[in-house]
Each structure stands twice: as structure tokens, then as C-alpha cells.
């Protein structure tokens, strides 16, 4: 199946953004609205509470997460570095991409450890709206991070095989920058 062949070659439109990048950009816009809805809901419910965090609920580990945030931001920087090297010589970009994957993996694993601690301290999905929102918002972000890490890993594989195209790489990068850029906002809104 697929495209019908043997059409006369004619000058096609030079797109402003390649298909994959534009599609990913639109997807990211929809995702931004999803998280904006969650943050708004969180603020409204928080505004309803007399005390925050609610009585008997643990404080979120702000300091440890600051370290974690740093790891994620560094991973974004590593990917930007990879792009700079990719432009000159694609094969040299592999190591920074793997660094970005490793730092992203560190972020997710660290968060998993943090969650285990919080559940032990009594913050669960059902214990209060605080817990519900925390696990929903941070968990959804973590899911996105895992998906983005898988996409990056796939890109690294293609890069190692020398088959990664610039527009594919750009759309994967766009998704990762979304995951990285969203996190400080969530950190600021949810943890403080």
C-alpha cells in the first residue's frame, strides 16, 4: 500500500516547518492546555483549603526535588548540546543524547524513590486532595517523561545506525524540551 507512484515530479511547497515538527508542536500545545487545566484545578482546590498542606499531611521534599530539578534541566541542556553537534557531524551527537537519556532516567528513578518515602509518611492518592493532586500531576508528568525517554532512546538507536533525520530528531527534542520546561512550573506550583 502507500503512496501511488509515478506522478510527474513538480515543484512542491517548501514547508515552513517539517511535518513531524509541526505535528509535534500541535501535540505539545494540546499537552500544555492539559497541564494548565490540572494546575488551575489544583489552585482552585488549594484556595478552598484552610490550611495547606492539610492537617496531618507531610510537607513535600522541596530540597531533594531541587536537586532532581537540576538533573532534568541539565538533561535538557545536554540535548541542546547534542543538537549543536548533530548539525556539524551527526555521529558526534550520540554521547550527549545518551547523557540526556541518563539524566532523564535519573530524574524518574529519583522521583520513584521520593514517592516511596511520601507513601510511608502517609501521603497517598486517597489521603487528601493534596495527595490526589500531587500524585495526579507529578505522576502524569512522570509518564510523559518516561514516554519522552523512550523516544529519545529510539532516536539514539537511529543515530547510532546513522539513520536519524534532522526533522525526526527535532520533533523528539521538542517533546523532551516540553517535558523539561514544564517541570520547573509544576515544581514551583505544586511543591511550594
Amino acid at each position: 500500500m502507500g503512496k501511488v507512484v509515478a506522478l510527474p515530479v513538480r515543484p512542491r511547497r517548501e514547508p515552513l516547518l517539517p511535518n513531524g515538527v509541526l505535528g509535534m508542536l500541535l501535540f505539545v500545545l494540546a499537552e500544555i492546555m492539559l497541564f494548565a487545566g490540572l494546575i488551575s484545578a489544583f489552585l482552585v482546590v488549594k484556595g478552598l483549603a484552610v490550611e495547606w498542606p492539610p492537617v496531618g499531611q507531610p510537607r513535600l521534599p522541596v530540597e531533594e526535588t531541587a536537586f532532581n530539578t537540576g538533573a532534568l534541566l541539565l538533561s535538557g541542556a545536554a540535548l541542546a548540546w547534542a543538537q549543536a553537534r548533530f548539525r556539524r557531524a551527526p555521529s558526534t551527537a550520540l554521547r550527549p543524547v545518551l547523557l540526556a537519556v541518563a539524566l532523564g532516567g535519573l530524574f524518574v528513578c529519583f522521583q520513584g524513590v521520593e514517592w516511596v518515602g511520601l507513601v510511608r509518611e502517609g501521603l497517598t492518592l486517597r489521603s487528601s486532595t493534596h495527595g490526589s493532586f500531587f500524585y495526579l500531576i507529578v505522576g502524569l508528568h512522570a509518564l510523559h517523561a518516561v514516554a519522552a525517554i523512550l523516544a529519545l532512546g529510539w532516536a539514539a538507536l537511529r543515530l547510532a545506525e546513522g539513520r536519524l533525520r534532522q526533522d525526526t530528531f527535532a520533533s523528539v527534542q521538542l517533546f523532551w524540551y516540553f517535558v523539561v520546561g514544564l517541570w520547573p512550573i509544576l515544581y514551583w506550583q505544586v511543591y511550594f
Binding site: L29, I32, M33, A36, G37, S40, L43, V44, K46, G47, L48
Partner: peptide, 22 residues
């Protein structure tokens, strides 16, 4: 309560955000 203020604030935010994005 803060709830009313937050409703107004988030309403303004959610109204402006899609327009700013586009």
C-alpha cells in the same frame, strides 16, 4: 475565601493561555 480569588485568577489564566499559545 481564596477560592473565589483563585477562580477569577485561573479563569483569566485559562482564557488567555490558548490565545497566547496560538
Amino acid at each position: 475565601t481564596n477560592n473565589r480569588a483563585e477562580f477569577i485568577l485561573t479563569t483569566a489564566f485559562m482564557t488567555a493561555l490558548p490565545l497566547l499559545l496560538v
